[in-house]
């Protein structure tokens, strides 16, 4: 089975189309319409200027020209272009946020350990004076 989506096709959610639910697969996806729900791709997600995504996203790279809200994982890169707006929680291996773009929320680097999971050293109640 070919697992490489880079050479694969790009599916399109066109401008007058709304998808509510789960989209998954080994493809790239271009969204000019609206998607609400879950997106899981082995390829890239491209959200065009008219695109609106309210979803939990897991993709290789994510390019945002429109609006994205939700919890997003970009295994390679998250790029927010000047017209793009992101609201939510992002995890990515690298970020590119252009001038003019809106990025509101939390960003984490993929690979870095989340602070909360740092093995808590037993809180030593003894005062260190």
């Amino acid at each position: 089975m070919a697992k490489d989506a880079s050479s694969g096709t790009t599916s399109l959610v066109s401008r007058p189309v709304v998808v509510e639910g789960e989209i998954s697969g080994e493809e790239n996806l271009h969204v000019d319409g609206r998607v609400k729900g879950v997106i899981r791709l082995s390829g890239d997600l491209f959200v065009g200027a008219s695109g609106v995504v309210e979803a939990e996203v897991d993709a290789r790279s994510i390019v945002i020209q429109g609006a994205v809200t939700g919890k997003v994982l970009a295994r390679r890169q998250l790029e927010v272009q000047p017209s793009g707006r992101f609201n939510g929680e992002a995890t990515a291996a690298s970020y590119e946020i252009r001038q003019g773009a809106v990025f509101e929320g939390v960003s984490r680097m993929l690979g870095s350990k989340p602070q909360a999971e740092k093995p808590a050293e037993p809180a030593d109640p003894s005062p260190q004076k």
Binding site: A5, S11, L12, S14, V17, E20, E27, L29, G33
Partner: peptide, 19 residues
């Protein structure tokens, strides 16, 4: 852009609406 296209390796569960 009026024609939406869901490729062979894409799987969709849910509701698709629009023109």
């Amino acid at each position: 852009s009026d024609t939406a296209f869901f490729g062979a390796k894409l799987s969709i569960k849910g509701k698709v609406t629009g023109s």
